Computed example of a mutant assay.
Amino acid sequence: MAGLHLRVLGPHAPGPAPRLHAFPLRAAGCARLGVCLLRRSSVPSRLSGVAPAVAAFHTAFGVHRNDAPTADVPAEVAALRIRLLAEEVGEYAEAVADGDLVGIADALADIVYVAYGAAVTYGIDLDAVLAEVHRSNMTKADEDGRVIRRKDGKVLKSARYTPPDVAAVLRAQTEVPW
């Protein structure tokens, strides 16, 4: 299978066997990147087991949650979610400044956990949204597979970039993963 890139999609834990997808490198837009751009239909919507775990925390501790996407969250709950995220980002910044690898790892895990908690609060399947954002981010390379960077290293959008369609992901959400 010369010229093909195999990508394993699907669960990485016990369960159904992963799906294998093979895409010709040029046809998939891989060019010089060495990785394939995933088609929207082949991006898994369940990237992790974090959402169900965080939802279980919300249930066990009586934390606000929704089972369908909604922006209708009490103002005090929305304000708490913002404060929690800001607190964890502050802890991350402190750990980076201190060169504390354990603190960095802990803060990053807390940021992800709190972000998933916010998603549970709003009834958002964050794994599905992340998959769509990832699909979009992979379109930032130009038609030759070149990456355009800002001076600080941020990857910039090329003319090939297609924005994430988060609204479509939310409309398509038929059930939450918890």
Rank of each mutant, 00 (worst) to 15 (best):
M1H: 12
G3V: 08
L6S: 13
R7G: 03
R7I: 14
L9F: 04
H12Y: 10
H12K: 14
A13F: 14
G15Y: 06
P16T: 13
A22N: 07
A22I: 09
R26Q: 09
A28Q: 10
A28D: 14
A28E: 05
A31T: 15
A31F: 04
R32D: 09
L33S: 14
L33V: 15
G34D: 07
G34E: 06
L37R: 15
R39W: 05
R40Y: 02
S41T: 15
V43D: 01
S45T: 15
S45N: 09
S45Y: 11
S45R: 14
R46D: 12
R46W: 07
G49R: 14
V50F: 11
A51H: 15
A53C: 13
A55S: 09
A56T: 12
A56Y: 03
A56F: 02
A56V: 07
F57V: 14
A60F: 01
F61M: 06
F61T: 15
V63C: 10
H64N: 06
R65K: 12
A68Y: 13
P69M: 05
P69H: 05
T70R: 08
A71I: 11
D72M: 13
D72R: 15
D72T: 14
P74Y: 04
A75T: 11
V77S: 10
L85G: 07
L85Y: 03
A86C: 15
E87S: 02
E87Y: 00
E87L: 02
E87C: 00
E88T: 02
V89I: 12
E91G: 06
Y92F: 05
A95F: 01
D98R: 14
D98K: 09
G99E: 04
D100L: 03
L101E: 07
V102M: 10
G103K: 07
G103W: 05
D106N: 12
L108Q: 07
A109E: 12
A109R: 13
I111N: 04
V114Y: 13
A118I: 02
A118G: 13
A119E: 08
T121M: 12
T121A: 15
T121V: 15
Y122G: 04
I124N: 10
V129G: 05
V129R: 01
L130T: 07
A131E: 01
E132S: 07
V133I: 12
H134D: 11
R135F: 00
R135V: 03
S136E: 00
T139Y: 00
K140V: 08
A141I: 02
D142A: 05
D142G: 03
D144S: 06
G145N: 11
G145M: 09
G145L: 13
I148Y: 00
R150L: 08
R150M: 04
K151A: 02
K151V: 06
K151R: 07
K154V: 09
K154I: 06
K157F: 00
S158W: 00
A159T: 07
R160D: 11
R160F: 04
P164N: 03
A168S: 08
A168E: 07
L170R: 06
R171M: 00
Q173N: 06
E175G: 01
W178P: 01
